[in-house]
Write a protein that binds this DNA or RNA. Structure first.
Lengths: 217, 217
DNA sequence: TTGCGTATTTGAACATGTTCAAATACCGTC
DNA sequence: GACGGTATTTGAACATGTTCAAATACGCAA
């Protein structure tokens, strides 16, 4: 039997403090104290401060999926759906911008949390699933040739957007919004290229590159 | 008059230890001791451990430029030159893979070191200059329409490659090499698209997106 | 209930990054 | 050569993330 409420309590407190004071300014002692617990007890449940961040990473994904649920089940072109999903994402993570830096940084630097690593496979695939749904539910339908590739590509772009957002200092990160709006329309020309005579060679090339990126470790 | 030799000594020692033991395992006290100096003195010259990493960032760029100097002055197609420049980059950073993670992470997370921030403008533009040279020296020449855009695009891709490299666990990071080889050929089709009837609309769209990304803070 | 084994919690420590006021070295001026 | 001011260096501290052996609580068999 595992006592899960202490763990939950620590996590909630940590997230709240992260949000209130930022990541660096939130000390493990503060988290523990605020949760009515000892620092060492916090370390019993979370091996490190980073592990708290990873837990947070999971939570964001859940929130994102909930947020864009209607979009995913509803109608719309690929571009429209993609745009809505990305803006929904920005809605969700907006309040965390203060310490999003730390969160992305951690995700990138800890081998287990890295988006590419095998250990984070489950959360990654969960996150990628959103883009699978974006693609599969869009009308007009995406050509079958590239349908399997698109989710991975979109997910990588999503990663790029996130990276940009982290460093976006504009008020309410409106630059990132503008970037999304400027990037999404590029998807239509890409699909057009795929249908060109020499398009399938390009698609093959892209498939190869994606294969290398997504290759299991 | 500024005593620059102590600073230099500390930096050299730090880089050596980073290389030998990795970033996290190299303590400021160890750096100082090994350099025959006090920790506080190290802090007089470098405000933080991160600043040492930033100094390292500059060094890598210098090494990279030296390494690919012949390539840049020599002949070759855009794809050939680009490929050579990226492989040269991987040659340079290969030995630092052990702590490259920390280095990229730091570069991304500290506002002053962030590739996009205004403060790191000089190193960034230096790094981007390599790609300007890649483009301007390539024969056949790149269409004037997209010539101003290409360096920024290539630099962003370069960023992506670096990010991938950081998490590449394959022996000698050969996956990253393969990724470069698989990505570079995509540049030819891109140039073809630009010349299509509807190509200039796409180019404009890309220009817009790049403008947002590269916008001064 | 009693005792035992495991799950949880604690308190006291450690090493690290970093700060700061005080000490020292250095340099030009009288 | 002595003086004054700045650049450099130091030693002692602080707060933080983290570890660990010991203490406590818990659940269950006898």
């Amino acid at each position: 039997m595992v006592r899960t409420d202490t763990r939950q309590l620590i996590l909630e407190t940590a997230l709240r403090l992260f949000e209130e004071r930022g990541y660096a300014a939130t000390t493990m002692r503060a988290i523990a104290t605020e949760a009515g617990v000892t620092p060492s007890n916090a370390y019993y449940w979370f091996g490190s401060k980073d592990e708290l961040v990873q837990a947070f990473y999971l939570r964001i994904q859940t929130e994102h999926r909930e947020r864009v649920a209607e979009v995913l089940t509803g109608p719309g072109s690929l571009a429209e759906r993609l745009r809505a999903v990305e803006h929904g994402y920005l809605d969700v993570i907006g309040r965390y911008h203060g310490f999003g830096k730390a969160f992305v940084t951690t995700a990138l630097s800890t081998p287990e949390a890295s988006p590419f690593s095998a250990a984070s496979r489950q959360p990654r695939e969960e996150s990628m699933a959103i883009f699978t749904d974006v693609v599969s539910g869009s009308r007009p339908a995406v050509p079958a040739k590239i349908r399997p590739l698109l989710p991975e590509m979109l997910w990588l772009c999503h990663l790029g957007i996130t990276l940009f957002w982290v460093n976006d200092r504009s008020p309410d990160q409106e630059r990132t919004r503008r970037l999304v709006d400027a990037t999404v329309p590029l998807i239509a020309p890409m699909l057009r290229v795929a249908r060109l005579p020499w398009g399938s060679a390009v698609v093959d090339q892209v498939r190869g590159a994606l294969g290398i990126v997504m290759e299991p470790a």
